[in-house]
Amino acid sequence: MEVALISINLPQHDGCPGPDEDKYNCSRNFTGPLLNYFTCNNGYHTIHHMYPGMHWTAMIEAHERLVKPKMHPNLDQPNLLWYLFVTYALPGGRKMYDGSPYVMPVLEEARR
């Protein structure tokens, strides 16, 4: 289970600014009920970053009320498997959170 939670972090954060840059667009939210059943609503990832101690049963309502009105609509994805297929299997599928062409982040080591 730990590997699954760690592995989901790539698609949740890929192409998104860091939370210090934009707290509403720092992660993708996978809103499908099956995934969230098995991950205690970890698919609602933006609200998890904003309130890491929030009980998992309160995340959906808090996401709808506090995050969704202020985030880019591309960041709510209903199906993780479909998103993975479209983004990483199809040519040209990888994009920034706002739909613009993907830009590889520069690693700190490369800047030196």
Rank of each mutant, 00 (worst) to 15 (best):
Y37C: 06
L81P: 15
A4H: 15
C16A: 11
G18W: 08
G93E: 05
H48T: 02
D98C: 07
G93Q: 08
G93V: 08
W56C: 05
C40F: 11
N42L: 10
E21F: 09
R94M: 04
T46K: 09
N25H: 05
H13L: 05
M71D: 04
R65C: 04
L10A: 12
M50K: 02
T87I: 10
D98E: 07
M59G: 02
Y83H: 14
P19E: 11
H48C: 02
P52L: 08
P52G: 14
W56D: 06
N41M: 00
T39V: 06
C40T: 04
L5K: 07
T87E: 04
Y97H: 15
L90K: 15
Q77I: 06
G53M: 12
T57M: 01
D76I: 11
M96H: 13
G15C: 08
P69G: 11
I47P: 01
V106E: 10
G43W: 02
Y83K: 10
F30Q: 00
L35M: 08
M59K: 08
P101A: 03
T57S: 01
Q12F: 07
R65P: 11
P17E: 03
G99A: 02
K68A: 14
M71T: 13
L35T: 06
S7R: 09
M96W: 12
Q12T: 05
N41K: 00
M96Q: 15
T87C: 10
G93H: 12
T31M: 06
V106R: 15
A89W: 10
V106Q: 14
L81W: 15
D76A: 14
I47W: 01
L84Q: 09
V67D: 00
I47C: 01
L66R: 09
L5D: 01
F85W: 15
Y97Q: 06
L34D: 11
Y102L: 02
P33R: 03
Y24I: 08
D76T: 13
I47N: 01
V67Y: 00
L10W: 05
Q12A: 14
H48A: 02
M104N: 10
G92L: 13
M71G: 10
Y97N: 05
Y97T: 02
D76S: 14
G18Y: 09
P69I: 04
N36T: 01
Y102S: 07
W56A: 05
I8E: 03
T46G: 06
M104W: 07
H55T: 09
A62G: 03
L80S: 08
Y88S: 13
P91A: 09
N74V: 11
Y37V: 06
S7C: 14
T39D: 01
W56G: 01
H45Q: 10
H13I: 04
H48Q: 04
